[in-house]
Write a protein that binds this DNA or RNA. Structure first.
Length: 562
RNA sequence: UCCCCGGUCGUUCAACGGUAGGACAGCGGCCUUUGACGUCGUGAAUCGUGGUUCGAAUCCACGCUGGGGAGCCA
């Protein structure tokens, strides 16, 4: 199973052959600490760390912390934890803020060479002078200040003599450029804010465009991989390092990950958290790395997913099904099997001795013989899944129904003899007779049954709270707010009211003491993971993902035909 | 209106002038003490029009179409 090649790998291979950078490969993963990492970042992490590893190079974890008003230490900590969990092995942790002094010195150098100037225009005036997509901008009246004046003003900006927004340092490039990023872009703005690392040491902060390339350069980055929206910034990235005459990393852009039914905008994820549409950044419904970890995803599954994505410049949208495929594949290999009944229906074996308890042997993981077996208590009164019984079974339904025989997994063959209903006509109890010759679920005489269902002994089962998750949004594109819907509607209108369902389930007693984070397959129901909200007397399970469900598919189709 | 980048099965990625292939999804068998897993099979695509060429998904031109771009955000 070799990885597919892609254009970035091809570029790196070509660069190594050309002895550019001395054959070195050095990448970086540069998040801004203004939120939690999400599955989209996993793609970038996988790419940057993966390429470095593949070519015997290095990858830095660098925080792009140039905007103190949005950044927090909490985010730095979570990002480090998430990158580590995903398996990223960084050469070092760096911060753009470590380079503030060097960046400042370089700015002075650009002023001296006549390539930068202090501009006194207000934000509104800057915007007006910038021109439009179709028309050129006009030069700032401060564009031709003398080097001396610029030097003095810039020093005073740094010294804190001016209020926020009153002045900027701009690169002197071309106000008529077709590329708006080249119309004398702002390099520094005044921000009297407390930075999470440098405190109040600085009151001027470099803009992304001025800080990023130079930070890459300082770290000796060879390939600066970023997402497509920075394509238009590349000429500016190149311009700065060329003017400065310093090491010139190559910026390469690729398409960011977009997933159906998933919101990737950090800003909007923040809104979900702040307005409590979800229970924090690590809510298992969130596409954040921490949310997915809590939900039960494994780092391997995320890595395999990211690896299988491919890298291109086509801005597309990946189906959520691909992600689910990778979790199932990984969990199938490693998750221990266990029986649990999500929506219990009482099943009574009329011909089973009242007080008898037998211990049935069950396989822990059919995919892994070394996982061994365990004993599960079996008795006269059991719980089975409500969905596994139908009084009037449709043609394709093979499970339990009046008169029909099925197998209780690892238990016995049982035949439904009668049902007990309440006054509303709902089935409250199912009565069966069992075949003593079928102990363990073995066919006594070659007799076949079409279904095997799971169960739990009523007297021995543990109660568990199970959290069933569906997609957070009802639409493939959460941002698709139909125009007819009243103005003011935003993506929250597409929130799925059924994204979380909490139910009381019955699980086999072997789950006693299961530790938070451990993952299981509840046979026939899906993969689950023990939530951190669990306590000694209360087990809480998150459903990571369902198993593929052939019956559901059949029924959906039948229902769809109507 | 201007600039940049794209357009290959439903989705995603490959094919780098020489047989359009994989994965997921779909469909249909087989297997099955999980309607799971596994396994076998199957349908399904080069945006259009010209041109270059023995030969074009690939090169060129024009058109169509999608994404990005006018933060003192990153």
């Amino acid at each position: 199973m070799s990885e597919q090649s892609h254009f970035i790998r091809d570029i790196i291979i070509a660069d190594r052959q050309s002895t550019k950078n001395g054959g070195r490969v050095h990448t970086r993963f540069p998040p801004e600490p203004n939120g939690y990492l999400h599955v989209g970042h996993a793609k970038s992490i996988n790419l940057n760390f993966g390429l470095a590893k593949e070519f015997g190079g290095k990858c830095n974890l660098r925080f792009d912390d140039t905007n103190p008003s949005k950044e927090e230490t909490e985010y730095v900590d979570s990002i480090i934890e998430d990158v580590r969990w995903l398996g990223g092995e960084w050469d070092g942790i760096y911060y753009a803020s470590d380079y503030f002094q060097q960046l400042y010195d370089w700015a002075v150098q650009l002023i001296k060479s006549g390539k930068a100037y202090v501009c006194d225009l207000t934000p509104d005036q800057v915007r007006e002078n910038r021109g439009t997509l179709g028309e050129p901008g006009i030069n700032s009246p401060y564009r031709d200040r003398s080097v001396e004046e610029n030097l003095e003003l810039f020093a005073r900006m740094k010294a804190g003599e001016f209020p926020d927004g009153s002045r900027t340092l701009r690169a002197k490039i071309d106000m008529a450029s077709k590329n708006l990023n080249l119309r004398d872009p702002i390099m520094y703005r005044i921000l009297h804010a407390e930075h999470h690392r440098t405190g109040k040491q600085w009151c001027i902060y470099p803009m992304y465009d001025y800080a990023h390339g130079q930070s890459d350069s300082i770290e000796g980055i060879t390939h600066s991989i970023c997402t497509l929206e920075f394509e238009d910034h590349r000429p500016l990235y190149d311009w700065f390092v060329e003017q400065l005459g310093i090491h010139h990393p190559r910026q390469i852009e690729f398409d960011r990950l977009d997933l159906t039914y998933t919101m990737m905008s950090k800003r909007k994820l923040l809104k979900l958290v702040q307005d409590t549409y979800v229970n924090g950044w690590d809510d298992p419904r969130m596409p954040t790395i921490s949310g997915m970890r809590r939900r039960g995803y494994t780092p391997e599954s995320l890595r395999n997913f990211a690896n299988g994505l491919g890298v291109s410049k086509t801005a597309g949208i990946t189906e959520l099904a691909l992600l689910e495929y990778h979790v199932r594949e990984d969990l199938n290999k490693r998750a221990l099997r266990v029986m649990g009944v999500l929506r219990p229906l009482k099943l009574v074996l009329d011909n089973y001795p009242d007080e008898q308890v037998e211990y049935m042997e069950a396989v822990n993981n059919p995919e892994d013989a070394s996982a061994g077996t365990r004993k599960i208590p079996f008795s006269k009164v059991l719980y089975i899944e409500q969905d596994d019984f139908r009084e009037d079974p449709p043609k394709q339904f093979f499970r339990l129904s009046p008169g029909r025989e099925v197998r209780l997994r690892y238990g016995y063959f049982v035949t439904c003899t009668s049902v007990v209903k309440n006054e509303r006509g709902e089935v409250m109890e199912v009565h069966c007779s069992f075949d003593p010759a079928s102990r363990g679920g073995n066919s006594p005489n070659g007799r076949k049954v079409k279904a095997t269902i799971h169960w739990v002994s009523a007297a021995h089962a543990m109660d568990a709270e199970v959290r069933i998750y569906e997609t957070l949004f009802t639409k493939e594109d959460p941002n698709d707010v139909s125009p007819e819907s009243t103005a003011g509607q935003d993506f929250t209108a597409n929130l799925n009211p059924k994204s979380l369902e909490v139910i009381s389930a019955k699980v086999e007693p072997s789950l006693t003491g299961a530790s938070p984070g451990s993952r299981y397959q509840l046979e026939r129901m899906g993969y689950f993971c023990i939530d951190k909200d669990s306590s000694a007397d209360k087990l809480v399970l998150n459903r990571t993902v369902t198993l593929k469900d052939a019956l559901a598919k059949i029924e959906n189709k039948a229902g769809g035909k109507k």
